[in-house]
Design a binder for these strands. Sequence first.
RNA 1: GGCUCCUUAGCUCAACUGAAUAGAGCAUCUGACUACGGAUCAGAAGGUUGCAGGUUUGAAUCCUGCAGGAGUCACCA
Length: 594
Amino acid sequence: MNIINSLTQSISRALKELYAIEQAPDGIVLQDTRREFSGDYTLVVFPYVKQARKSPEAVAAEIGAYVQSNLDLVSGYNVIKGFLNFEVADSYWLQFVAGGAADTSFGLKSTDPEAAPVVVEYSSPNTNKPLHLGHIRNNLLGWSVSQLLAAAGANVKKVNLVNDRGIHICKSMLAWLRYGNGETPESTGIKGDHLVGKYYVEFDKHYKAEVKQLMESGVEEEQAKKDAPLMVEAQQMLKHWEDGDPEVRALWERMNGWVYAGFDETYRRLGVGFDKVYYESNTYLLGKELVQKGLDMGVLFRKDDGSVWCDLTADGLDQKLLLRRDGTSVYMTQDLGTALLRHNDFGAERLIYVVGNEQDYHFKVLKLILGKLGFSWADKVYHLSYGMVELPNGKMKSREGTVVDADDLIDEMEQTAAEMSREHGKNDELSADEQQHLYHILALGALKYFILKVDPTKNMLFNPAESIDFNGNTGPFIQYTHARIRSIVRKAEEGRATLDFSKISLNDKERAVVKILHALPATIQAAAEAYSPAMVANYAYDLAKAYNSFYQDTPILREEDAVTKEFRVALCQFVANALKNTMNILGIEVPERM
RNA sequence: GGCUCCUUAGCUCAACUGAAUAGAGCAUCUGACUACGGAUCAGAAGGUUGCAGGUUUGAAUCCUGCAGGAGUCACCA
């Protein structure tokens, strides 16, 4: 049994027997004893002193004595003010290592494929331009949270909702017709999504010129923006698209096809994927029936001009439009529809949307309206709201050319990784292909770790010039630690035997590593509850750091005592497995050598 | 302007639901290569946790006010 559960149960009994305090074991919080004090786990007794009617020192001493006499695994305790520090017997740690070292899935729960799934939507790109740094955070988070929830036992389904229709795509299409000269990804060698993005920019350029011209001839800015011939034509094209005009549809399919090929390539390089892909062109009409239902139920109302609204003023919000006066739907209408579709498709236990915090308001409203429409599962909708990625000079702005392109960034990372590897690496015997693969996983390890180690809810700063490092608290640091361990374990592989570790005594560095390993399952559980890959990333770093410190001044293969040596090799193996599993949750591969 | 979120070392980030002297990395300085892999390790220096109050035995964490920043408040998505 887990020592922490044993402790909290024993403490719970102690509180009851000594002071008649009813405190369930779950409610008792143990924290890791701070380094400067001796002990492994600490109970803060202040919350109980009032009821116990004794001094903090007395309460701590009495609980300590009770627990030690009732739990063999507690080898001692000490009291400092109101802090009761428990010492756990080495025998417990040794048994833990003996049992877990060879468990390649340590810390990971198995999933029941029959369980109601947790559906995670992420990525959800527009098809008019390539992916950039903001999308990278979204994709890495979406993938990692999916891995994390799966590691905590959830049956995860990853979905993508591609925004493949709308005025923005028509802009690219129109510009391509006008100025494209029949260019294709094949004819130009330009990746499909970038080619389409190029024409989106091209549209904007010519459109701006038209607006400027109109304004110079005396038209108001707002009117000019509506009247510019290119905009009028794009609107017409959208209408033709909605009417199913074969020519427009054919062009749309062709250009979207280029974009999908480009996206697939970027997804592949990022190492992310989906169980199901939805297309907005199939779902954008959904939701209208829901609006009708809402009208019938009386939770929505129609204004004189025919538009339909939901009144949320009672919830402290405004009125929200759900159907335009021409009867067409808006974003919210579609999202109501797709939520229902997804709920029906999966019978989901939870519907998670990985979407930036700029849409906090949207999701608040979405949940409210779903509730008003009578869907009991409205509270299963969870908006995983993440912070913006900022650049040193503020937000990314395509007009100012400050957008960090996803493909460019990966390219640069791979180049840097290659340079670093040639400088430091021990991979001369690798083939050219293997080296390329290594550079790739190091590059992505650095990038992914850099982004995922930050609390998802917080905005983060990304400095392209100097942000990504390969030393210190980085992905490659952890990858390096893994490679180094694997090197040791490979060398130790001959003549390994299962020996009885029970006579060993642990040194401080060993104990520190074992305690961190011991905390892995609880860490994954807590991280999953918080939807925070950052907690996993920080864990992996703590473990690697503690291991490196242990490694530095403790002989392993050089150790002469066979049992101690075998124990240390087992500990190495254990750490390697834990690093591999935690990095895998982050979507990061760990190499055998680097 | 209304609402929401944020502000921790020079910089980038930690600190689980309030707990002991607020921790890492980068940058700076000093040590460790006769190596189980130095992409490492050991150490130094660096803080009035934006400011002012309050609650509490105890506050970076909870409450109020203020300052600064971000987001949002579309018949865009």
